[in-house]
């Protein structure tokens, strides 16, 4: 059966729909200009809340829906796309960020609950002159990634893993890094990177 053999639905036939797309475009023009506003960018299809949080040391105020997740706020509102989405359902760790110093899955965290919090993403790790954080350096040197997609989450998780005191030996690192999936299979190199940073900190 082909598309044209079906009776068009009232109000949404292909022809009438295309006719109405001008209105859609106009509505979007509005959303687009909102998103570009510098001081309080927004992400909202319905009622919105304004929240303010510290992201990588900078105070940010933004409008979000109650249902907007932290990862969507970071990526789509603040344009901090270093944080990745690998499942959007709390299973992979790609979206790991530090929230008040603790590693969390930002896809499972509603942005409104992060109001007032201190968030660190991968963009906030290098120092202002661009010197890499030791964990970033260790990941690069140990080839602790291939495609690099899980890497921002792995790096933040790895920093927290050491801070938590869960990097005692390779077995413990493997266990406490198992919430961050890497489909490229870089795990042994990830463990080597964590060990290198741990040893550097001790030494």
């Amino acid at each position: 059966m082909t598309k044209s053999s079906k009776p068009p639905k009232p109000g949404l036939s292909r022809r009438s729909f295309l006719g109405s797309s001008g209105a859609v475009g106009a509505a979007m023009g509005l959303a687009g200009s909102k998103a570009q506003a510098q001081d309080a960018p927004e992400l909202a299809a319905q009622e919105q809340r304004h929240i303010s949080l510290t992201v990588n040391g900078q105070r940010r105020t933004l409008g979000v829906e109650p249902r907007t997740t932290l990862v969507e706020a970071l990526r789509d509102v603040l344009g901090l796309t270093g944080t990745k989405i690998g499942c959007n359902q709390g299973q992979c760790g790609a979206c790991t960020v530090l929230l008040d110093g603790r590693r969390i899955n930002s896809c499972l965290t509603l942005a409104v609950t992060a109001d007032g919090a201190d968030v660190v993403t991968v963009e906030g790790l290098a120092d202002p002159t661009g010197n890499l954080h030791p964990m970033q350096q260790a990941f690069a040197e140990n080839d602790a990634f291939q495609c690099g997609y899980c890497t921002p989450g792995q790096i933040l998780s790895a920093i927290a893993c050491i801070d938590e005191g869960h990097a005692g030996d390779a077995a413990e690192i493997r266990e406490y890094m198992s919430g961050n999936l890497c489909r490229c299979g870089a795990y042994p190199n990830i463990v080597a990177a964590v060990e290198a940073v741990r040893d550097g900190q001790e030494g």
Binding site: R75, D76, A140
Partner: peptide, 25 residues
């Protein structure tokens, strides 16, 4: 060492879903 390593460890490697064209739905 990978030449793209600095981009991958700083979150500046641009994957397809990282682009935000103006007015995107």
């Amino acid at each position: 060492t990978r030449t793209d390593a600095p981009r991958k460890v700083t979150g500046t490697a641009t994957y397809a879903a990282d682009v935000l064209p103006a007015g995107m739905l």
